[in-house]
Every structure is written in structure tokens, then in C-alpha cells.
Design a protein around this nucleic acid. Structure first.
Lengths: 184, 184
DNA sequence: CACACATAGATGATCATGCACCTATATGTG
DNA sequence: CACATATAGGTGCATGATCATCTATGTGTG
């Protein structure tokens, strides 16, 4: 089943009603390690979900700030969600810019590769920090599934770190800088 | 820098000249763990690379089989490649259909989650088998980088397996089937 | 006081991607 | 003999995704 963003939004709204802006923050935070969407796409998808009768929208005026349009699932939306959850999982179609570069990096030589590794170190450390900052309090099925997903991200981030260490040695590349504070 | 497919193709052609069909097999095999592209997209990108003067094309007639159009890098193409390799690595924008489903899987309950795990087991085992079947003979920088990339895929696949085992326990889900041979 | 940023929603243009389908021929399988 | 698959190239269409930009207001920073 395609059109994943649609389903990711249905999923997020099944946890609690959210505005488009809230959704974009979720895609930048809680679910960032397994899905991505920018705001323009979110608003358009919300339009389509609304047209399909999957969500209802309540406008909540705020003072000082712009109005919020808070979207909730309808029965139709809930059905769409479970139908998606019950359908076969599609194959991954991985797009990993770092590995793509590394694979073809011979023309930029060892120094170039070293730069790639330094950049990757930073990326991994950042995403690890972001993942570590997420906390889930509850302990029902929903919360446990979220924790499991989070742990998946953490394990892969750690695996990536380990691989970086190992591969740096293997390629005879110097160790990563210990104090990356001092950059102009 | 965007338009990764363009650069992935330049990278593959920097290793050796290939036809569009060859490229599609590479995307289904050697580089499948970090990039994906379907054939229609490959042919279109080749057209654009050709128009940009990055590749030249030689038509090689074959008997019994259709003609091959074998593409090679030009100096312009090589320059485009090194420029890309030298540019900053863009952030990952992960799309992981399995994790997306798991995160929102509460409505389908434990049985549903169990099904998701079984499917994931199969996916991981398949991609692990594919990765394990790839062998790289040489030992120059190009080959070492390819081996490193391959090892990255293997490590993550193993990490995923480990996570599956651990998470099954945590969620109190029965162990995966030991003999998945007998499927109709 | 200028500027950036967070909040909140959105549009237009463009590019990338995926899916279905088409042309050919040779070989393999039920 | 029908059908599927591999080889090799490709088109057309619809959707998905990205980028820049717009409208407002309040708050914080140099």
C-alpha cells in the first residue's frame, strides 16, 4: 500500500487530535527517525484526508497567535488506519546519502573519505542525542510500541557508531576529533 | 546537493561503463542496501546526463538479444562526480515503512503486531542473505570502500535481528517460526 | 530598531518517483 | 502450445516531495 504519509498522519491523529503545525513538529521530533515530511506536504495531505472524510477539523482561535485547525479522526479514518496496518509491509527502499557517497568516494581519496567520516560522526551524534531526549511515560500497548520503535533507532545509531570506529581503523583514518567545540 | 540518482549513476559509471539495464541490476543488487531506483527513472536520468554532456553512449549490437547502449563518463561527468563527493552530506530523511506501522500498531493488537514481526523477520533474513552473497575481490581503495559499505549493511541487518528478538520478548510475543521452508 | 525565530496556515512551480504499460526476441516450464 | 522470465530499451500518467514565498502576530537578541 502506497501513500505512506497519509497513513502516518492518520496514525498520529489516532493517538490524539493535532494541528498541521503539531504534525510537522512530530515529523521533526518523535517520528523523525522513521519518517519525514515537510509542512507543505502535510497541509496538502490533510486536505485530501478531509475530502475523503477521514478527518474532521475544528478551528480553535487563540489570542496573540494564529488560529489552530485541530484535526481528529473519523470512523472512516480509523478504518483506513487499521486497513493499512493490516496490509503487508512494503519493502524498504533505502536512500542513504552517506553510504552512497562512501561507496563511490575513491576519486576524493583518503582526505575526502576522512571528511565524510567526520560529517557522519556529527550526524550520528546529533540523531543519537535527539533520540535520547525523547521520553515516553505511559506503559500501555501504544507506549510500549513507541518505546520499541525508539529503541530501534537507538540501536541502529549505536551500530552506526561502532561501524564508524571499526571502519576508520580499517581504512587507516585518524580518530575523530575529541573536542569539536572550537569551530569558526 | 539534491538529485542523488544522477550522482549514484555517475558513481557506478566511474567504476566501469554500463548500460541502463546493467544499472538497474546494480540498483537491485550491489547498491540496493543504500539506494533504490526503478528502470524508468534510470533511463530518464541517463537522458539528462547525456544532454548535460556528462556521459557518452556507445551502441553495441548483440545477436539474439536487443542492442546494448553502454554509457561512459566524460571529463564533465567525472567532475560532476567529484564535486558531489566533495559537497556536504545531506541529512537522512528516513522512510521506514515497518517502523511506521509498528509505531501506530496499537489498533491491530498483539496478533497484528506479531504478524508485523513475522514479516519483518522475513525481510531482514532476505536482505541479510542478499548482502552475504555479495563478494568483492580486489583490495584497492575502491574495493575497500565498497566492502565498508557492505559491512555497514550487514551490521545494521544484524542489529535489526537482535532488536527483533529482544522486542519480541519485551512485548511477550511468541518466537519466530524456526522452519519457514514450508510455505505454499 | 532591525532582524531572526516561533507560531499557524497555505500556494505555485518544479522536480523526483512510482506504476503501468509497450516493443522485441530467446529460452525455459508446465 | 501457452505462459513466464530474462534481456534491452522505453513512454505516459499520476502522485509525491521539495523549495521558495506569502500572510499575520508576538517575543527575543544584538
Amino acid at each position: 500500500m502506497k501513500m505512506e504519509l497519509k497513513h502516518a498522519i492518520l496514525g498520529l491523529l489516532s493517538i490524539r487530535p493535532l494541528s498541521g503545525y503539531d504534525l510537522s513538529r512530530a515529523f521533526a521530533g518523535t517520528v523523525a527517525h522513521f519518517w519525514h515530511a515537510d509542512r507543505s506536504q502535510i497541509y496538502r495531505t490533510l486536505d485530501r484526508l478531509s475530502a475523503a472524510g477521514a478527518i474532521t477539523t475544528e478551528v480553535i482561535p487563540q489570542d496573540g497567535k494564529p488560529d489552530r485547525k485541530v484535526h481528529s479522526l473519523t470512523d472512516v479514518g480509523r478504518e483506513m488506519l487499521t486497513e493499512w496496518l493490516s496490509s503487508p509491509v512494503e519493502a524498504d527502499q533505502p536512500k542513504e546519502p552517506f553510504l552512497a557517497r562512501l561507496f563511490f568516494a575513491a576519486p576524493i581519496g583518503r582526505e575526502g573519505v576522512e571528511r565524510l567520516f567526520d560529517e557522519r560522526d556529527r550526524q550520528v551524534n546529533e540523531s543519537l542525542a535527539e533520540l535520547a531526549s525523547i521520553t515516553i511515560e505511559a506503559d500501555d500497548l501504544t507506549a510500549r510500541l513507541q518505546k520499541a520503535t525508539l529503541r530501534n533507532g537507538l540501536l541502529h545509531a549505536e551500530a552506526e557508531r561502532e561501524w564508524l570506529r571499526e571502519t576508520r581503523q580499517l581504512l587507516g583514518i585518524v580518530e575523530p576529533p575529541q573536542n569539536p567545540e572550537e569551530r569558526p
